[in-house]
Structures are given as structure tokens and as C-alpha cells.
């Protein structure tokens, strides 16, 4: 079988191994690390992680599908995750979602045809004091309104 994951992946995993008494505990870190490389988790990558950890491919999928942060389908270059939980919806998150849906021409959960944007509603991000909030890549954007969100999208569209 050809290798899909980089040497860097295997080096990083090697460094982590002594931190855990079992190898299967490396599954979440491995999925995170692999997603950093691919932006999502293609089936062949899930299989390769199973071989590395020495577990059945179904076990990899069973775990990967439990957690919302693992993308089992490709996502756009920019993945907009807008929190619509209590505090954010009290502070206008629904308008932000509507704004994005209109501007990008997609519904929540969809990716634009040019694969530039994926839009998702998100559960509580833990930024309720600075609501409404959005996660984009590893970054939080807080105290948003349609104007500041619009500026972020302007920048990303350039």
C-alpha cells in the first residue's frame, strides 16, 4: 500500500508515543495531525492511521465519526463555523448565518462551488462573553456583526 501521510506525521507521532501507555490513545492526536496535512480525512488516510496504530479500519471510522471537528468530507479552503448556541443567538448569530448564506450562496453545511468556503453552524465555542463568535481555521473571531464579518469575508475573497 502506498503511503499518504508524510514523514513529518510519523515523526510527530513517534514523539507523542511515550506520553501514553497505549498506542490507541494516539488516535485523536493522529486524526488531528493528519487533518492538518489534508484539510480533511480521506478514506485512505483513515486506513493508514489504522495500520499505524494497529487497529481495524472500522475502529478508526467509528471514532472519527463521533467528533464534529474531523472532516470526513472535503471542506472549502476557509471553513466558517458560526456559533448559534444560546449566548451567540441572543446576540444576533442568526443574522450572521443568514448574511453568510446570502453572500456565499450556500446553506449551512455546504461548500461553495469554487471550494473556497464551507459554512457551518457550530455549538458553543466558549466565547459567550464576546458573542457572537465564529471559528475560522484555528482562530476565533468575536463580538461580530454583519459589518465585521463582511470585512473578514472581503479579506478572504481577495
Amino acid at each position: 500500500m502506498s503511503k499518504h501521510l508524510s514523514d513529518g506525521f510519523y515523526q510527530d507521532m513517534k514523539k507523542l508515543e511515550p506520553h501514553y501507555p497505549t498506542k490507541v490513545a494516539l488516535l485523536l492526536p493522529a486524526l488531528h495531525r493528519a487533518q492538518e496535512e489534508y484539510g480533511w480525512l480521506p478514506p485512505e488516510v483513515l486506513d493508514e492511521i489504522g495500520i499505524y496504530i494497529d487497529i481495524h479500519p472500522a475502529q478508526v471510522r467509528e471514532v472519527a465519526s463521533f467528533y464534529t471537528m474531523y472532516n470526513l468530507k472535503p471542506v472549502g479552503k476557509h471553513h466558517l463555523k458560526i456559533c448559534t448556541n444560546v449566548a451567540c443567538s441572543l446576540m444576533g448569530a442568526d443574522e450572521l448565518v443568514e448574511y453568510c448564506e446570502k453572500r456565499l450562496g450556500v446553506r449551512c453545511g455546504e461548500t461553495t462551488a469554487d471550494r473556497k468556503f464551507t459554512l457551518n453552524e457550530e455549538e458553543c465555542l466558549g466565547a459567550c462573553g464576546t458573542a457572537p463568535a465564529m471559528m475560522l481555521g484555528d482562530d476565533y473571531h468575536e463580538n461580530l456583526d454583519t459589518e465585521s464579518l463582511g470585512e473578514i469575508l472581503d479579506r478572504l475573497e481577495k
Partner: peptide, 22 residues
Amino acid sequence: RGAGAYICGEETGLLNSLEGKR
């Protein structure tokens, strides 16, 4: 790092997650 699951705040859910499980 967890990976997006409220239930992992429950301590035994958290421990399973730490062990590489659902």
C-alpha cells in the same frame, strides 16, 4: 486535544476520549 463533542466534558466520556475511543 478533544475534537468537538460536548459529552467529553463528562468525566468518563472524557476518559474514553483520552484513551482513543468514542
